[in-house]
Design a binder for these strands. Structure first.
Length: 489
RNA sequence: GGCCCCGUCGUCUAGCCUGGUCUAGGACACAUGCUUUUCACGCAUGCAACACGGGUUCAAAUCCCGUCGGGGUCACCA
């Protein structure tokens, strides 16, 4: 039997990277064994349903390169893949449980249960609902009154349920510690612990790999599996992802936790996949960088950690840098264009000369370009004549005696260099420093700030060439004017 | 609070199952140095951990117990 895994997100909002990691483990497991990865939308709770959420989830998966064999858009033989469309299956399963006496009608009211809960809290014990099936007479009477009822699973007492978890090991729970749980709400809506079991069985899921928060739910689910006489899948509960530098679960409050944030910043899917795989999983003592196919080849649940790991944006950033280094120039150039466009630095149409310039900038930026959005922060001045001077750089490199004079001389130099290109520029600059007995740093640095406005950046000669003679001279003039203006009267 | 899960450098982890090779290894981050016109890259060096307390043993990060800490769950949410 082939391995079938699934990821069943609830479409309540954005795609959390912790969720993406869980999905990744599922996907990796399926691909490793040549099985199928199923995407199912757990949207039983319509109240919490967020319209565009499914689209966001799908986009995130596509971006990551995690393809699903069955699910939304692609369909499959055991659909539908939206829980909201599987009502009949839940109905049939619920009827079966009613017939076999595993569930009973619970006519209790919200008020009654709230009281029971409150009493349990005060007694400092766990709240457990434990009811008795109503008699036919009671049922008739309540129905006549029009009282609604939920379907509750009657937990058999005196047993121990055992989960053979592939990550946590054997985990036990005495049924005496469990309360009877609702499987179908009054109104007919099936609940997670029931719907999930019906679907996992119906979809022939062999490995349920999901977040640790479901570990305790699993005891209830196993009972349902058994009552329905379904074969049990293997379970694997992955620890939660903690916030950076803490052991607390990562939440929206911790900042960038949505996959869309990283997509928007121009992270590479390969880097994200590499990073996510490494949080909570390792192959050996040393390997950090994994390609997608290596991950598929080397992934195993056995090596997933049983303890939580925290999100480490620094490490993500480093891995991203490593992946960026492997990319050919042309690919980076194409990827950077949308960012330039969004920032209004280039127009819709990219002409050949413009593309050459972008390529020159990306090339000059080299390893400094860690994410695609860096093109904006690091390369802005190449695409606009409006120079923004970094105050620190101005203070450090330009607010010195003799600098205006130096810049005027350099301007003259730039005016005469022929041809105007990296090699000649470099020779001219060295000669200039030598004849004037100035250190290279003292000529290069002021000139950098005067032409780019920044204290750091690519090699100066690259910058000068890309900018072009006229632009450089204009910028020097602008900088001179700025210095003049700033001078105290 | 009951029940369940977890606890190695700041962080990701190797080692733990099958005690000795662990004066606990690698990586990120950080610091310093080298390279360099700046930054980035690269190279080198440094910093830094077995939560705590008992026990078992010739020997414990590794096995057992307890404590503390973190997390989950106890919904007619997922």
């Amino acid at each position: 039997m082939s391995v079938r895994t699934r990821f069943a997100p609830s479409p309540t909002g954005y795609l959390h990277i912790g969720g993406v990691r869980t999905a990744l483990f599922n996907w990796l497991l399926a691909r490793h064994y040549g099985g199928q990865f199923v995407l199912r939308i757990d949207d039983t709770d319509q109240e919490r349903h967020v319209e565009k959420a499914v689209g966001m989830i799908l986009d995130g998966f596509r971006w990551m390169g995690m393809d699903w064999d069955e699910g939304p858009e692609v369909g499959g033989s055991v659909g539908p893949y939206y829980q909201s469309q599987r009502g009949e299956k839940y109905k049939a399963a619920a009827d079966k449980l009613v017939a076999s006496g595993h569930v009973y009608r619970d006519y209790s009211t919200d008020v009654e249960r709230a009281a029971g809960k409150k009493a349990a809290d005060e007694a400092r014990v766990a709240y457990r609902f434990r009811g008795t099936p109503p008699t036919p007479d009671e049922m008739a009477r309540f129905d006549a009154e029009g009282r609604p009822y939920a379907l509750r699973f009657q937990v058999p007492l005196g047993r121990t349920v055992v989960i053979h978890d592939l990550i946590k090991g054997d985990v036990e729970q005495k049924t005496d510690e469990m309360g009877d749980f609702v499987i179908v709400r009054a109104g007919g809506q099936p609940l997670y612990n029931f719907a999930s079991v019906v679907d996992d069985a119906d979809m022939a899921i062999t490995h349920v790999v999901r977040a640790e928060e479901h570990l305790t739910n699993t005891f209830s689910q196993i009972l349902v599996f058994q009552a329905l006489e379904y074969e049990l899948p293997a379970f694997a509960h992955v620890p939660y992802v903690a916030a950076p530098g803490s052991r607390k679960k990562l939440s929206k409050r911790d900042g960038a936790v949505g996959l869309d944030t990283y997509m928007g910043q121009g992270y590479l899917p390969a880097a994200m996949m590499n990073y996510l795989a490494r949080i909570g999983w390792s192959f050996d003592a040393t390997q950090e960088i994994f390609t997608r196919s290596e991950l598929i080849e080397k992934f195993s649940l056995e090596r997933v950690n049983s303890s939580p790991a925290s999100h480490d944006p620094d490490k993500l950033f480093w891995i991203q840098g490593e992946w960026m280094k492997t990319l050919p120039l042309a690919e980076k150039v194409d990827a950077v264009i949308p960012f330039l466009r969004d920032a209004g630095l280039v127009g819709e149409e990219i002409h050949l000369n413009q593309k050459r310039k972008i390529a020159a900038v990306v090339s000059a930026l080299g390893d400094r370009l860690k994410t695609y959005s860096d093109i904006i922060t690091l390369g802005r001045y190449f695409f606009t004549e409006t120079l923004t001077h970094d105050p620190d750089a101005v203070k450090k490199r330009l607010k010195k005696p003799g600098v205006p004079d130096l810049l005027r001389k350099l301007d003259l130099l730039l005016a005469t260099v022929e041809p105007y290109e990296i090699a000649t520029l470099e020779t001219a600059m060295h000669q200039f420093a030598e004849t004037n007995a100035i250190k290279m740093g003292d000529v290069v640095n002021p000139l950098r700030v005067a032409t780019t406005g920044q204290g750091v950046g690519p090699g100066l000669y690259d910058c000068l060439e890309i900018l072009g003679r006229e632009s450089c001279r204009a910028r020097i003039a602008g900088t001179l004017a700025m210095l003049e203006e700033a001078r105290p009267a």
